[in-house]
């Protein structure tokens, strides 16, 4: 189980695979305002990244994986309106 809901927070844990995109989208759609915690996340499939971009939840946590932390996270967190920031 890599997508779990814990109160107002959705935790993405371990490697999130393509099939995780649907439960994530379903949760984000059903309950607007949820926060997504990437602290224990080790990898995001493009379909999951896409769901995070589409539903634009608040993203918290700092994953330890360098690709996630340095390349992907800046696109999801903070001023992401255009999703284009130099790294």
């Amino acid at each position: 189980m890599t997508v779990t809901r814990d109160g107002a927070t959705i935790r993405l844990q371990g490697r999130c695979r393509v099939e995780d995109a649907e439960p994530l989208a379903s949760l984000l759609h059903a309950t607007p305002g949820l926060t997504v915690d990437l602290g224990d996340c080790e990898g995001l499939h493009a379909a999951v990244v896409q769901a995070l971009l589409a539903f634009a939840p608040k993203v918290v946590g700092t994953p330890s994986d360098p690709v996630l932390r340095d390349l992907i996270l800046p696109l999801l967190a903070g001023e992401r309106q255009r999703g284009q920031r130099p790294i």
Partner: peptide, 14 residues
């Protein structure tokens, strides 16, 4: 994309 060597900038958009 993440496997591309020597990435210096990345953007993902719909």
């Amino acid at each position: 994309v993440a496997a591309t060597p020597q990435l210096i900038a990345l953007s993902i958009a719909p």
